[in-house]
C-alpha cells in the first residue's frame, strides 16, 4: 500500500512537471504553426505551381509562409514538389538531414506521393516517403496553389494540435 502511495506521489510530481512543459510546448507549437519557412527547393512541374503560389494571384504570404530560405539550416518546411528520381534522392535526403529541428515535410503532387505516372520506371522513387518521413500528402498532378494552401493549413492544424493527431493515429 505504501509503495503504491509513493508511486502515486511520484506520478503526481511528473504530471506537475509535464503540465509546465506542455504549456511551453503549446506556445511554441502555436508560433511554429504560424511561421513555416520553406526551403527554396523544387524538383519538377509541381515546383511551377509552388512558384505560382508565391505570386500575386494566389499569394502564399497571406498565411505568412512566403519566407523561402536559401539554406536548409534556417528552414522549417520542405515542400517536395515534383518527381524524385533515384539520382536526386540522395540530394533530397541530404537537404532534409541538414535542416534544423523541428522540421516538416509536405509531399506535393502524385510523383512525390507515390511515383505518379512514372511509378513503373526504374529511375523514379515510388514516393518520397521511402526516404524521408512525410507529414502531409497533397494529391494532384500537379496540385493547384489552392491545394498547396490547404495542405499547409492542414500541417498547421497538425503542428498546433499534436494531441489530436496522436488520437487520430493511435486511438485512445
Amino acid at each position: 500500500m505504501e509503495v503504491d502511495n509513493e508511486k502515486q506521489h511520484e506520478a503526481d510530481e511528473m504530471v506537475k512537471k509535464n503540465i509546465i512543459l506542455a504549456k511551453l510546448d503549446d506556445v511554441l507549437n502555436w508560433g511554429r504553426g504560424w511561421s513555416f519557412w520553406p526551403v527554396s527547393f523544387g524538383l519538377a512541374c509541381c515546383a511551377i505551381e509552388m512558384m505560382a503560389a508565391g505570386g500575386p494571384r494566389f499569394d502564399i504570404s497571406r498565411f505568412g509562409y512566403e519566407v523561402f530560405r536559401p539554406t536548409p539550416r534556417q528552414a522549417d518546411l520542405m515542400i517536395v514538389a515534383g518527381t524524385v528520381t533515384r539520382k536526386m534522392a540522395p540530394a533530397v535526403k541530404k537537404i532534409y538531414d541538414q535542416m534544423a529541428e523541428p522540421k516538416w515535410v509536405i509531399s506535393m503532387g502524385s510523383c512525390a506521393n507515390s511515383g505518379g505516372p512514372f511509378v513503373d520506371s526504374y529511375a523514379v522513387l515510388p514516393g518520397v516517403d521511402s526516404i524521408i518521413p512525410v507529414d502531409v500528402y497533397i494529391p494532384g498532378c500537379p496540385p493547384r496553389p489552392e491545394s498547396l494552401f490547404y495542405g499547409l493549413l492542414q500541417l498547421k492544424q497538425k503542428v498546433q494540435n499534436p494531441a489530436k493527431v496522436r488520437l487520430a493515429k493511435h486511438g485512445k
Binding site: 508560433g31 511561421s35 534544423a100
Partner: peptide, 15 residues
C-alpha cells in the same frame, strides 16, 4: 506575424 516568427525562432534547434 512577427510574433509567430519570433516564437518559432526561439524554439528552433541551435545547430
Amino acid at each position: 506575424q512577427i510574433i509567430g516568427d519570433m516564437i518559432k525562432l526561439m524554439g528552433k534547434e541551435d545547430f
